[in-house]
Amino acid sequence: MMYKAIRDKEVVELKNALQKFPNYQYDWDENDEPRPRIVASPKHSDYTSDYEVCRITENLGYDCGIFIKDLESGEVVETGYAFLEFGSIDSLLDELPEITE
């Protein structure tokens, strides 16, 4: 139960952070920045693996809004926060650039 509460708080923080970017999303490729790495087990996957995060969109949800690239196959798939390893959302928050207003 504590895990879910922490995750839910982090999801709200990530959604709020995305509001500061154009189109309410952040794309590491468009900004020529190194992609953050996470551990995930996206739906339709049989195992947990390492991925690079390509983009996070305002459509962020349980099973959508996060585009990740499999480091082995190179395939990009869409997933959501429910399929990320605990702590990944917090690390993504750290990887977003600071916006000065």
Rank of each mutant, 00 (worst) to 15 (best):
M1Q: 11
M2Q: 15
M2Y: 13
Y3W: 08
Y3A: 13
Y3L: 14
Y3P: 06
K4L: 12
A5R: 13
A5G: 12
I6Q: 12
R7S: 06
D8Y: 02
E10G: 07
E10H: 15
E10T: 05
V11H: 05
V12S: 07
E13P: 04
L14Y: 03
A17K: 15
L18W: 07
L18F: 07
Q19K: 13
K20T: 15
K20A: 15
F21W: 07
F21P: 14
F21I: 14
F21N: 13
P22R: 08
N23P: 08
N23V: 06
Q25V: 00
Q25H: 05
Q25D: 07
Y26S: 12
Y26G: 03
D27H: 15
D27L: 09
D27I: 05
W28C: 02
W28E: 03
W28Y: 04
D29F: 02
E30T: 07
E30P: 08
E30H: 14
N31Q: 14
N31S: 13
D32N: 14
D32Q: 08
E33P: 10
E33I: 10
R35S: 07
R35H: 13
R35L: 08
R37G: 04
I38S: 06
V39D: 07
V39F: 05
V39G: 08
A40K: 01
A40W: 00
S41A: 14
P42K: 04
P42W: 01
P42Q: 11
P42Y: 08
H44W: 10
H44C: 04
H44A: 12
D46V: 12
T48G: 04
T48W: 11
S49I: 01
S49H: 09
D50F: 03
Y51I: 02
Y51D: 07
E52P: 00
E52I: 00
V53H: 01
V53Q: 01
V53I: 04
V53L: 05
C54L: 14
R55A: 12
R55V: 10
R55N: 09
I56C: 11
I56S: 06
E58N: 15
E58Q: 14
N59R: 14
L60A: 07
Y62F: 14
D63P: 06
C64L: 06
G65Y: 04
I66M: 11
I66F: 08
F67Y: 15
F67G: 03
I68V: 14
I68H: 02
I68W: 00
K69T: 09
K69Q: 12
L71D: 07
E72Y: 10
S73D: 08
S73P: 13
G74R: 01
G74I: 08
G74P: 05
G74H: 05
G74E: 03
E75W: 09
V76P: 02
V77C: 11
V77P: 02
E78H: 03
E78V: 01
T79E: 10
T79K: 04
G80V: 02
F83A: 09
E85C: 01
F86Y: 10
S88I: 00
S88H: 02
I89N: 06
I89T: 12
L92Y: 04
L92D: 01
L92F: 01
D94G: 03
E95N: 14
E95L: 02
L96F: 04
L96T: 05
I99F: 10
T100C: 09
T100G: 00
T100N: 11
T100E: 14
E101R: 13
